[in-house]
Design a protein around this nucleic acid. Structure first.
Length: 636
RNA sequence: GCACCCGUAGCUCAAAGGAUAGAGCAGCUGACUUCUAAUCAGCAGGCUGCAGGUUCGAGUCCUGCCGGGUGCGCCA
């Protein structure tokens, strides 16, 4: 479709340039919402009318007259709506082109893309807020791969922060467990979920405890046992738990970048030299920040502390160094070791402080996507600013904060879970999810609920299925429902989480998409059994009755938009447009399915055309579902 | 206080400056002896928060209000 649009544009421009002063940018095509307005439409006449002061309608008619019958791919041209020029494609050649090119692989693109997502503090189990991050990040990575990019998925592990000190303190001093006792705790991540909320409540009410926590944090930084060893153990176990949870959703990582290695390998020192010599980072003149090194955030005219008066480095400082490294702009590298292998043999590497396994180079990105919620915009913007100030113009432009709004919970949902609300919170439209307050739905619990529900649905529809057969199907449906739910909203709309919506398997949902393909596959299977497997070139659409022909064309035309849709989603940071695209296509197909039976059709040519349509639909929709991380079960 | 985001049907959300503002859920009618009814067809539901402005054209852009959220830490 994209190729065709460009081709039509080139031809039209060549013709119109003789009579009008138009540029490449003036001629923009769009797909009209209704087919009576054509397959391609342009507002060129409106744009030009302003410049040369002629009525748009007159101009549009004149232009249409000049273009009529002179564009190879265009059957006819009409003017409508006061000046839109609408183009109707030659349908049979278009269908042939789509059919012939359906298997063509996407050419590889040279630009390597690093996507950072998940990055959960390793001190408690993952919750629904993290799921939005990981699902978006994973789909983003899949979009880039689909378009031919090399993609590296990184997960940043803050294994040194105060959050982890909280639970270390909780285990060692609040619950008075020794290391051996800690190692005996099963399902540590869930256990810490409760403990983390509990100790934070304690910290809030008792000043002295906060000092104890700082003491634990200090001991971890100075590698003093048992605090340090407990910290290492907890971070590793919880991290493994997060990896396991996300693997349930088919979300995988390539590299785990540890904050302790960013610190241990003095990444910041390497960055600091440059920051200081370019006077990006300076000694603060503010008496309250005496002895601190700061960077001025220009957008809001704030001084951000990078190096504290005690010479320790803040989170932003470490993040600046880490992101410079992602682009290969730091004269320093991590060491690496293999950490984990997925059942499909895909390895995850972890950064290391000491020389480990030699491996292919990580980082060296041409473009970086950081999937982090909107609350960190200020810090991400600061990093982009710093890249620019250091003279890395290209990298600054390719440093992308893939920002999304938070997941919240309605007061009703919080109450439903048996959790407490303050009277003030009761009256809010939603309250933010918080691991610190233990106020969130745990990721694993939600996945379990989804699987349980799909199990019931499968059982009622397919009573003969054994549990062994039903289980993978239940999982596939649960994953589809969850991933679709997480991607269908606009990035800047807050998701006010609601069990009823998230557990919906009907209508605008992941299982709806799966069901469409399951039925379609069933037709193809039966057609193959009847010896109708191999398909020839598509026949002429004229063979179809008008009503079917129009619907058929509508579907073919929309199917051709897969690649432009993915490019649009990526360029505009709007992955929800992919969900809407997939849903719209399936709606159209289901409508067609009900009106026009395939296998019962008597006319062999019509039957062939219908089989062509469903083959093409399967081809495109499977690619689209793969981008969304949704698999298609054999039956539902 | 400053900065960013949101306000569309009873509810949850779409609408890429464009043609008659669309879906799902909930409600009401209908369609399983048929390629799987997790489906489909239909009914009903709207001063797009308010007031101005820009434009051939505004839910979308600008200004001001009203209501809500978030960020602005020597936490990460």
């Amino acid at each position: 479709m994209k190729f065709l649009q460009e081709n039509v544009k080139k031809q039209a421009l060549a013709i119109l340039k003789n009579d009008y002063e138009i540029t490449d940018a003036d001629l923009v095509f769009s797909l009209p919402g209704e087919r009576k307005f054509g397959d391609l439409s342009t507002n060129l006449a409106f744009v030009l009318a302003k410049k040369i002061k002629i009525k748009p309608l007159l101009l549009a008619n004149a232009m249409a007259g000049k273009l009529q019958n002179r564009l190879a791919e265009i059957e006819s041209i009409q003017v409508a709506g006061g000046g839109f020029i609408n183009f109707f494609l030659r349908r049979d050649p278009f269908l042939h082109y789509q059919w012939q090119n359906r298997m063509r692989p996407m050419p590889a693109k040279p630009e390597k893309i690093v996507v950072e997502h998940t990055s959960i503090n390793p001190n408690k189990a993952a919750h629904i807020g993290h799921l939005r991050n990981s699902c978006l990040g994973d789909i983003l990575a899949r979009c880039c791969r689909f378009l031919g990019h090399e993609v590296e998925v990184q997960n940043y592990i803050d294994d040194t922060g105060i959050q982890i000190a909280d639970v270390v303190w909780g285990l060692l001093y609040y619950q008075k467990k020794d290391l051996a006792a800690i190692k005996e705790i099963s399902d540590l991540a869930s256990y810490l979920w409760n403990l983390y909320a509990e100790v934070n409540q304690a910290f809030a009410t008792d000043e002295k405890l906060a000092a104890a926590r700082r003491e634990v944090h200090k001991k971890i930084e100075e590698k003093i046992n048992p605090e340090y060893e407990a910290c290492l153990y907890i971070a590793q176990q919880v991290l493994l738990d997060h990896i396991r949870t996300m693997a349930r959703l088919d979300i995988q990582y390539d590299l785990l970048a540890r904050e302790s290695d960013v610190i241990g390998l003095d990444f910041f020192k390497a960055a600091a030299a440059e920051l200081t010599s370019r006077r990006v980072m300076t000694l603060s003149q503010d008496p309250e920040k005496q002895g601190c090194l700061v960077i001025r955030y220009e957008q809001e005219n704030i001084e951000k502390i990078i190096v504290r008066s005690n010479q320790t480095i803040t989170y932003v400082g470490k993040d600046i160094a880490y992101n410079l490294w992602k682009f290969g702009l730091l004269p320093r590298d991590f060491h690496y070791r293999p950490f984990f292998t997925y059942p499909d043999n895909h390895p995850i590497y972890m950064t290391a402080g000491e020389p480990g396994t030699p491996t292919s180079r990580f980082g060296q990105a041409g473009k970086v996507f950081n999937v982090i919620d909107v609350r960190q915009s200020y810090l991400q913007n600061l990093i982009a600013q710093v890249l620019l100030q250091l003279g890395h113009v290209e990298q600054s432009r390719n440093f992308i904060h893939f920002s999304y709004e938070m997941v919240a919970m309605t007061p009703g949902c919080v109450r439903e879970m048996g959790l407490n609300l303050t009277p003030e919170e009761e009256n809010k439209p939603y309250v933010e999810v918080s691991g610190r307050k233990g106020r969130a739905v745990k990721a694993d619990d939600l996945i379990d609920q989804l699987i349980a529900k799909s199990r019931l649905e499968i059982k009622s529809r397919n009573p003969g299925l054994s549990p062994d057969e039903a289980e993978p199907i239940a999982r596939a449906i649960a994953v589809a429902a969850l991933r679709y739910f997480m991607v269908k909203f606009n990035l800047n709309s807050v998701i006010a989480f609601d069990f009823k919506e998230a557990l919906n398997f009907e209508g605008d949902s992941g299982p709806y998409l799966q069901y469409t393909l399951v039925r379609l596959n069933s037709i193809l299977k039966k057609a193959a059994a009847a010896g109708l497997g191999a398909l020839n070139e598509p026949g002429c659409l004229a063979r179809l009755e008008k009503a079917e022909r129009e619907l058929y064309w509508e579907i073919i035309l929309n199917l051709s938009l897969l690649q432009p849709q993915v490019e649009y989603a990526l360029a505009n940071h709007e992955l929800s447009s992919l969900a809407a695209y997939a849903y719209g296509l399936c709606q159209k197909f289901n409508h067609y399915y009900h009106l026009f039976p395939v296998l019962a059709e008597k006319d062999p040519l019509v039957k062939d055309l219908r089989l062509t349509l469903i083959s093409l639909f399967k081809n495109k929709m499977e690619k689209l579902l793969q981008i969304m991380g949704i698999s298609v079960p054999d039956k539902m």
